[in-house]
Structures are given as structure tokens and as C-alpha cells.
């Protein structure tokens, strides 16, 4: 009995277990405090699905042997450029969203390939280099946001001239186009069908890629470069492919995030977007060299719902912004924990 219980705990993993129990505790407290439960649940759904693709971006890079993609801001700024150009051209609604994707994806592919070449020169240091590369790109892009030849009044400072605002509202552009698509209410809970569908479709595409010839070559190269080489696989090439897909998912992910959030956040906002995504997939049970779609779903759900539920509950009990503190402790703590162990759970 006892050994069974221990092996069960080991299978689930302590972090997942602790966070899940904490989440359950918070939910019970929310219920006792008579909070609006359906509203809470629909927030959980939205937050999970809107962050899902950014977390999904970790899968190809981990599978390719690059570790979690700490350089996610590279993909994110590509997505943001796509969005601002699409707004400049005056597209709205789905046209706006998809034209943003159409501009962002080629940019992300290019950026992913170039950054992939860089990563091949720093094998074994991907995570550290990635963190700095992400920071540099996000900071470097601040200049672009200031100097970009974009003049749409929706984006520039109210007093005119050039230079984009820090936060651009998407109201009337493509605010919540996915969230509202086919959405419905059940038991007072609002379900963002389009958003969830889009996340699932992206996940299925990644899963399909993982079962393809190239995808399998990439995973082999990620898990054992020696084996891959002796099977005639070009390891450097598969690493670039993995990194490129991850960057593209980062670009798509930020657009999905932005349309749900209702705002585009420029300048320094992309700097710290990578850490919550890395933390989420690690909470889901991934390690720095093994990740699956299941890890993405479990991790994003646990991490995001914890944040959603913790904020109102703690604010009722304690003064101050506890949710933000919890996010930082759990997020960074989880990354640290994952770095100390090399094997993931199955």
C-alpha cells in the first residue's frame, strides 16, 4: 500500500501534486467566501487557453534538444510587428487577426533560422544564451517601436508624430475575435470556444509534426545527437527546425494572447514573457530535455488557474498584491527546481 502510494506520488511528481492541492484549497476557499464561481471558472478557461500557445512553443525547442526556449521574446516581437503592420494597413476583425499572422509568421521563420544558426555555435549553453538573446531583441526592438514609420492614429501617441504607444488597445481592431467565435454560456460560465479550438488545432499540428519523418529526426537528434548522426540525420539542421517552429509558435502565441487580453503591449513587455511559459510547461511535468503536449495542457492549466484563483482569494484575506508575488515565486522557483533535475516524469 505504502509503496504504491509513494510510486503514485512519484509518477505525478511533487510539484504538480503540491500545486494541484494548493489550487484545490484556493477553490474551496473561494467557494466558502461565496465568490462568483462560474465567473472564476470562465476566467480560468480564458487564461489557460490564451497562454496555451506560448507554452506550446516550448515543446519543439525542448524536443530538438535546445531546452526550453528562453528566447521566446524573439518570436513575440515578430508577432507584435505583424500586429502593428496589420493595424497600420487598416484591417479589422478576423481579417486583422489573420493578416497579422500572415505578416508575423514569415518574420518569425526568418528570425528562427538566424537565431538557430547562433544556437548551433553555442551548443550546451542554449538556455543562458537564449535568455540574453530574448532580452536583447526585446530591448533592441524598443528603438524600432519609437522609429517605425507607422502613422495610424490608433497606435501613435495622442499628440501625433512618430513612435508607438506602450499599450495599444485592440478595441474595434481584433479584440477577442477568437474568444467570441462560437462562444456560449453554460451554467453561467462563459466558454471561449474559438480560443480553445485554436489552441487545440495548434497542439494537434505540433503533435502531428512530432510523428512526421522530420519531427522524429528532430527528436532523435534532441535526445541523442550521436544516434542521430549515425542515422544520417543532420543534427544542426534539425536544431534549426525545432527553434524555428518554436519561434513561429511564439509569434502566433502573442497574437492569440493579445486578442484575448485586448491590448498589444510593446517596449519592455515581451522581456518577461518567456518565464511564465517555461514555468508552466515544467509544472506540467516536462523537464529541460523532455516535453509533450500533455505537459503543456496540464502545466498551463495548473499555473494559470492558480494565478486566476489566487488573486481574488488572497486579496479578500490579505492586503496587498499577493497574486503577483505568488506568480514570481512559483514561476521562478519552478524553473530553478527543473534545472536541478534532468529527467522528467512520463
Amino acid at each position: 500500500m505504502r509503496s504504491n502510494a509513494i510510486s503514485l506520488i512519484n509518477n505525478i511528481g511533487y510539484p504538480r501534486l503540491i500545486i494541484a492541492s494548493f489550487l484545490l484549497l484556493l477553490l474551496i476557499m473561494a467557494f466558502v467566501l461565496e465568490m462568483d464561481m462560474p465567473d472564476l471558472f470562465s476566467s480560468v478557461l480564458i487564461r489557460t487557453a490564451m497562454n496555451g500557445i506560448l507554452v506550446l512553443a516550448m515543446v519543439p525547442s525542448i524536443k530538438a534538444g535546445l531546452g526550453p526556449n528562453f528566447a521566446l521574446p524573439i518570436g513575440i516581437v515578430c508577432g507584435l510587428v505583424g500586429a502593428v503592420v496589420s493595424i497600420e494597413m487598416g484591417y479589422q476583425g478576423f481579417a486583422g487577426f489573420f493578416s497579422a499572422l500572415a505578416i508575423a509568421i514569415p518574420l518569425a521563420i526568418l528570425a528562427g533560422i538566424i537565431y538557430g544558426y547562433l544556437l548551433n555555435k553555442v551548443k550546451g549553453q542554449e538556455m543562458t544564451v537564449g535568455t540574453y538573446a530574448g532580452f536583447s531583441i526585446a530591448s533592441g526592438m524598443c528603438i524600432f517601436w519609437l522609429l517605425a514609420p507607422l502613422y495610424s492614429p490608433k497606435m501613435i501617441w495622442p499628440y501625433g508624430g512618430a513612435g508607438l504607444r506602450v499599450t495599444i488597445t485592440l478595441d474595434g481592431i481584433f479584440d477577442k475575435v477568437l474568444n467570441n467565435f462560437l462562444s456560449f454560456e453554460i451554467f453561467g460560465m462563459w466558454v471561449p470556444t474559438g480560443l480553445i479550438l485554436f489552441w487545440i488545432i495548434c497542439s494537434l499540428l505540433v503533435k502531428m509534426f512530432a510523428r512526421s519523418k522530420t519531427g522524429l529526426a528532430m527528436q532523435a537528434a534532441g535526445s541523442n545527437p550521436g544516434f542521430a548522426r549515425s542515422s544520417g540525420i543532420n543534427v544542426n539542421q534539425t536544431r534549426i527546425i525545432g527553434n524555428t517552429i518554436s519561434t513561429v509558435l511564439g509569434a502566433i502565441g502573442i497574437l492569440v494572447y493579445a486578442q484575448s487580453y485586448g491590448f498589444l503591449q510593446l517596449y519592455t513587455a515581451p522581456l518577461f514573457m518567456a518565464f511564465p511559459a517555461v514555468a508552466a510547461i515544467l509544472i506540467g511535468g516536462a523537464s529541460i530535455n523532455k516535453a509533450t503536449i500533455t505537459h503543456v495542457f496540464i502545466g498551463t492549466f495548473l499555473f494559470q488557474s492558480l494565478l486566476v484563483v489566487a488573486m481574488p482569494v488572497t486579496n479578500l484575506i490579505i492586503q496587498g498584491n499577493m497574486a503577483e508575488i505568488a506568480r514570481i515565486i512559483i514561476g521562478n522557483g519552478m524553473i530553478l527546481y527543473a534545472l536541478t533535475r534532468s529527467v522528467g516524469s512520463e
Partner: peptide, 19 residues
């Protein structure tokens, strides 16, 4: 070099021939 230790037996057997 010989094995993908965290992959299944069948993938190990088939991967080279597949590629």
C-alpha cells in the same frame, strides 16, 4: 551512439531505416 534511451524499442529499431 547505439540507442535512443528514452524512446521505445520500435522507434529505435525503425528510425534509421525511416530516415
Amino acid at each position: 551512439v547505439g540507442l535512443l534511451l528514452d524512446e521505445s524499442i520500435e522507434r529505435n529499431i525503425g528510425l534509421t531505416a525511416m530516415q
